[in-house]
Amino acid sequence: MVETLIALLFAHTVADFVLQPNWMVTRKRHPGVLLLHGSLVLLTAQITTGQFAALPLLTLALLHLMIDSVKTYGGFTGLTGFLIDQATHLVVLAGVALWSPSLWDTGLWTARLPDPMGAALPHLFTVGAGAILAIRAGGFAIQLLMQGHALSDKPEDNGLPGGGATIGHLERALIFLLVLAGQIAGIGFLVAAKSILRFGTISGDRKATEYVIIGTLFSFGWALLIALGTQSLLATLPPLEITAQWP
């Protein structure tokens, strides 16, 4: 069952955070755009599981559309709405995996891909889903959080366009990689480096300092939790024996 859940989770992260650009999010009240997103949810689930005529996947896409409709037309646009929306999607993914745990085992990839490639795919899906959640989803979550702490002149306003968001993506990517590599202590050096580099731009401005601290702590904490969750999910999979297959 865990492989099915991982395949569905990876499909969800791709559909929600990679294949859903800003124009789609802003126009989601239009039924056509909402249906397009639902179609992408179904397509990504079909591709990752290798199942193209499975009723559980169609049910998954319909439930995804229902959840998004409630969020969109209900006006739940803040961080709380985002977190509840994603948590509900995760519950649906788990429910579908429990309903049809053999989706992965009977799918195209299990039958067609020889080991070690077939055995490695769930591991790759897990890392991919974790990276998307840590980097892309984390960026959206921080943006929603910081809406409640808006400054008239943000610290990055005089810097590169989009520079702050890019820094956030990079720092969460580094934290994710450090945790998976077993080098959690390296996060401390990352915190110190960012503090030193930011000191000159916010020194003496209490509002800007607090703005940066809130965003940084949330960004680091988000990436750390996702990375630890990814580690835990990887631990549920059978270990890869690539050396045994390729002497």
Rank of each mutant, 00 (worst) to 15 (best):
V2N: 15
T4L: 05
L5V: 00
L5P: 03
A11Y: 03
H12C: 12
H12P: 10
V14N: 04
A15I: 07
F17G: 09
P21Y: 07
T26M: 07
R27K: 14
P31L: 09
L35V: 14
L36C: 08
H37E: 06
V41W: 07
L42R: 11
Q46I: 00
T49V: 05
F52E: 06
F52H: 12
A53S: 15
L58Q: 11
L62P: 03
H64L: 04
G75Q: 09
F76D: 00
L83S: 01
A87N: 02
L93K: 01
W99T: 09
W104H: 11
D105S: 12
T106M: 03
L113H: 05
P116M: 08
A120V: 08
L121A: 11
P122S: 05
L124V: 15
L124D: 05
T126G: 10
A129E: 10
A129Q: 09
G130I: 07
G130T: 03
L133G: 07
L133I: 14
A134D: 10
A134P: 08
R136V: 15
F140C: 01
F140Q: 10
F140E: 09
I142W: 01
L144Y: 07
L145M: 05
Q147S: 13
G148M: 04
A150E: 08
S152N: 12
D157W: 08
N158D: 14
G159M: 08
L160F: 03
A165T: 13
L170Q: 00
E171C: 03
A173R: 03
L177D: 04
L178Q: 13
G186I: 13
G186Y: 07
A192Y: 04
A192R: 08
K194A: 13
K194P: 01
S195P: 01
S195E: 01
I196S: 14
I202E: 10
S203V: 09
G204V: 06
D205A: 12
Y211C: 07
Y211W: 01
V212C: 11
I214E: 02
T216P: 03
L217R: 11
F220W: 03
L225K: 05
A227I: 02
A227R: 01
G229A: 09
L233D: 01
L233A: 15
L233N: 01
L234A: 12
T236D: 01
P238Q: 04
L240E: 00
A244W: 10
